[in-house]
Design a protein around this nucleic acid. Structure first.
Length: 822
RNA sequence: GCCCCGAUAGCCCAAUCGGCAGAGGUGCCGUCCUCAAAAGGCGGAUGUGCGGGUUCGAAUCCCGCUCGGGGUACCA
């Protein structure tokens, strides 16, 4: 046996042992496993293979792993899977830069990451492994797409995209920096392209309602973010007749009470409506304005307090409540993607409308008296509650009541109704990219959009004959002429494949359902696996996915539920967001540089110490500043445990634990109980602190009073090592062996605290005088209020503290506290 | 601008029911061991961001600020 702790020397041995023994394989992933044994499904968000693992990865998987190990040690059958989110743009960029195949780059990185996961000692069940770029996986993206297409949940519509005029290509949002093309710096334009969408808006209300199931189990800030993102807003739809147009134009407003104050009407400048409404005489002015809006859009959007701009369209609308003619303007402050892309403008009670009115010299009419000064003179709109004025029959009503009556009256004439809108948009799927899932649709000149038949799936990406960045700005797949040209599946006419690929969020919206049977080929996931493991019990990942991935996964789960494939509507029962790993307050990334390198940290301190350092640094959701933490401190602690295990293991056990030193055993069992509670609450940093405390107690016990031979010392050391295995698996195995126990410690179970040892006979009672601590007394733990008061009043130190003053009031909280008020 | 979260020792963090401010780490100082040092053992000091309120009692609850972090951004 070695005489000093060497974290590197013990890695290989245990990796081989675990693998040979299948220590971390879930029992019967798709069958029932042992009857009655609880199951738990712990999933960490799967990685994108951008290169080797970095500090951030180490943190997420260390958190997920310690939870999986804890749950497993308490007897549950745990599935802790791993896969790769391996489609995506970086593979294309890397391929362009190095002149290689995106596939080659991707799978090489996956292998590097898989090896790094092994060496970190993460307890994955490797049988679950798959990659989203495998045709066996993305085939089911296509299958899902077709099911959604059949239900009208997948559809095509024209939508603006970011367009770089110099590179003549479509850009992803993250390639647009400050309104400019990331690569060439030219100003990005908005262009309309026909694109595929999933109808997420149809699920807006359910995404909101079902959050009730997540309350208290997901972090509050994530729920708040999702609520804002979905952005439910209540109000009314009101129809305005526009002169010279047959159909009225509908607006959405949250303030129907201000309808009498509408002094003009605004439509989104980039909407088809503006184009249609513009009269001939205003055409030139409008076209010029619209061109300006389209090009300058992205840059100006970032500018704060931008002056309001717009053009008069030469027409008037009629306010349905009073027949008043109000001018119609086009402006970019009205958004084309929200509501009906038209608003009634009430400058007195909406700051944006007021700014516009001031810029264009339009009238301001106060119709809600809020008690604040006149908006027209102050330039500050009054948006608060108040009483209606200048509103005809509705004068003097409170604004909410007045609004209700106005809507009711208009509704009788059929020109208004109560309405709810959402900020949430439909999910734009189409990507003009190569490295993604091809959209399984054929465009036929005769039949239109024709789905690829299920038995022809997957539509596999072409290996050759495509350009990654075609100069004409088409999708890469459009340049693969031989691949794109196919006969129509319906009529046989020469047709063309859809040449866009899917957003990679499609891949990650359901991957966790496939892990239980990763090779299943009769559907996206094995129904038996779903039955046994889903929904996910514990999901661990970054907060950056709050409004993206987590909404998409929730949406997809509801869609699959509605199709009858899933019995549940929420995919993740419990969510943990881990913080970032930063260095001196600065985030790490590929562009900012990896200020701390994971592999270097592992070589310097060993995988266990790196894991312990991260988990001990603070609550899982807090950021870790590597400059503030001490990996050498973690090494020191692990070495301490290692030595302790060696010393305790070196002396023979000569009695049962019950014969051990009782003070020590009480302390050990208390610490075990506390650690258990902390682990259940996922308070990993505090749990580790308790283990450190236990280490110190045992060290004192070995060096001093009961001595190393005491059975309580062995009992405590074994408990320590078992609990340690959640955080430092290699060291814990080694310690377990040094204690003379047969491997694996992972199968030794979580220690249980003996309730009999948790009861305390006496506790320290704090005696306060006027809230200030004046004395402490040892009292029986079971003492009653009245008896305690007697005890306290009779105690010498208390009488001294009182100095004869009369006690006016006594507050007794037996057995811990008595407060005497004088 | 709006929404959410946070602020405790030099630093990272505990204090989960409103009841002794300190569990743990790190840094610093002292001490034991040593010829000496390292390693290891033992011990120590420093305070709840600011101002009000509720209460017998507030780090904890309420109100108002300051600072920091995150989200969102003309959403009618």
């Amino acid at each position: 046996m070695e005489d000093s702790y060497n974290p590197q020397a013990i890695i290989e041995k245990w990796l081989e042992f675990w693998e040979d023994r299948g220590t971390f394989e879930a029992e019967g992933p798709t069958d029932n496993g042992s009857p009655g044994r609880p199951r738990s499904y712990v999933v960490s968000m799967f990685p994108y293979p951008s290169g080797d693992l970095h500090m951030g990865h180490a943190e997420v998987y260390s958190i997920g792993d310690s939870i999986a190990r804890f749950t497993r040690m308490r007897g549950a059958n745990v599935l802790n899977p791993i896969g790769w989110d391996s489609f995506g743009l970086p593979a294309e960029n890397a391929a362009l830069k190095r002149d290689m195949d995106p596939k080659e780059w991707t799978y090489r990185n996956i292998d590097v990451q898989a090896e790094s996961f092994h060496r970190l000692g993460i307890s994955f069940d490797w049988r679950s492994r798959f990659h989203t770029s495998d045709p066996e996986y993305y085939r089911w993206n296509q299958w899902l797409f077709l099911r959604m297409f059949e239900r009208d949940l997948a559809f095509r519509r024209s939508a603006p995209v970011n367009w770089c005029p110099v590179d003549s290509t479509v850009l992803a949002n993250e390639q647009v920096i400050g309104g400019q093309c990331e690569r060439c710096g030219s100003v990005v334009q908005q262009r309309d392209l026909t694109q595929w969408f999933f109808r997420t808006t149809a699920y807006a209300q359910r995404l909101l309602d079902d959050m009730a199931q997540l309350e208290g189990k997901w972090p509050d800030d994530v729920l708040a973010m999702q609520r804002n993102w979905i952005g439910r807003s209540e109000g009314a739809h009101i129809d305005f007749v526009v002169e010279g147009r047959e159909a009225p134009i509908r607006v959405f407003t949250t303030r129907p009470d201000t309808l009498f104050g509408a002094t003009f009407f605004v439509v989104a400048a980039d909407s088809p409506l503006a184009d249609e409404l513009c009269v001939a005489e205003r055409r030139d002015e409008f076209e010029a304005y619209r061109a300006e809006v389209r090009t300058a859009n992205e840059i100006d959007r970032l500018a704060k307090d931008r002056p309001k701009t717009g053009v008069f369209l030469g027409r008037h609308a009629v306010n349905p409540v009073n027949g008043e003619r109000i001018p119609v303007y086009a402006s970019d402050y009205v958004l084309s993607g929200y509501g009906t892309s038209a608003v009634m403008a009430v400058p007195a009670h909406d700051q944006r409308d007021l700014d516009f009115a001031k810029a264009f010299g339009l009238p301001v009419r106060t119709v809600v008296d809020t008690g604040e000064p006149d908006p027209e003179t102050t330039g500050v709109a009054t948006a608060g509650p108040g009483t209606l004025v200048q509103s005809g029959p509705y004068d003097n009503l409170p604004h909410t009541e007045g609004g209700g009556k106005i809507v009711a009256a208009l509704a009788e004439r059929g020109v208004a109704e109560k309405a709810v809108t959402y900020r949430l948009r439909d999910w734009l799927l189409s990507r003009q990219r190569y490295w993604g899932t091809p959209i399984p649709i054929v465009h036929c000149p005769d039949c239109g959009e024709v789905p690829v038949p299920d038995d022809e799936l997957p539509v596999v990406l072409p290996d050759s004959g495509y350009q990654l960045r075609p100069k004409d700005g088409r999708s890469p797949l459009a340049s693969a002429e031989a691949w794109a040209a196919v006969p129509c599946p319906r009529c046989g006419t020469q047709a063309r494949r859809d040449t866009d690929t899917m957003d990679t969020f499609v891949d990650s919206s359901w991957y966790f359902m496939r892990y239980p049977n990763a090779g299943y080929d009769e559907g996206p996931f094995d129904p038996a696996g779903i039955e046994r493991w889903l929904p996910v019990d514990e999901y661990v990942g970054g907060r950056e996915h709050s409004t993206g991935h987590l909404i998409y996964a929730r949406f997809m789960t509801k869609v699959l539920h509605d199709m009858g494939y899933l019995p549940f509507v929420e995919p993740f029962r419990r969510l943990i967001n881990q913080g970032q790993v930063v260095m001196n307050g600065k985030a790490m990334s590929k562009t900012l540089g990896n200020l701390v390198n994971l592999q270097e940290q592992i070589s310097a301190h060993g995988p266990d110490a790196v894991r312990v350092t991260m988990l001990f640094a603070g609550p899982p959701e807090d950021d870790i500043d590597w400059a503030d933490v001490s990996p050498t401190g973690a090494v020191k602690w692990l070495a301490r445990v290692w030595r302790l295990a060696g010393e305790v293991g070196a002396v023979p056990v000569d009695a049962a634990p019950a014969d051990g030193d009782s003070a020590l055993r009480k302390e050990v069992h208390h610490l075990v109980a506390e650690t258990t509670t902390l682990m259940e609450g996922r308070r990993l940093n505090v749990a580790i602190a308790r283990l450190m405390q236990l280490t110190s107690s045992l060290r004192r016990a070995v060096d001093g009073k009961p001595g190393p031979k005491d059975p309580g010392v062995r009992e405590g050391t074994e408990a320590l090592v078992r609990m340690l295995s959640c955080f430092a698996p290699f060291t814990a195995e080694e310690c377990w062996e040094r204690l003379g126990r047969p491997a694996s410690v992972c199968e030794a179970g979580w220690p249980e605290a003996d309730p009999a040892l948790l009861v305390t006979e006496t506790v320290t009672c704090v005696v306060q005088v006027n809230g200030k601590v004046r004395a402490r007394l040892e009292v029986p733990a079971t003492v009653e209020d009245a008896a305690l008061e007697e005890l306290v009043r009779a105690a010498d130190p208390v009488r001294q503290a009182l100095r004869g003053a009369a006690v006016k009031k006594v507050i007794v909280r037996a057995p811990r506290l008595v407060n005497l008020v004088v």
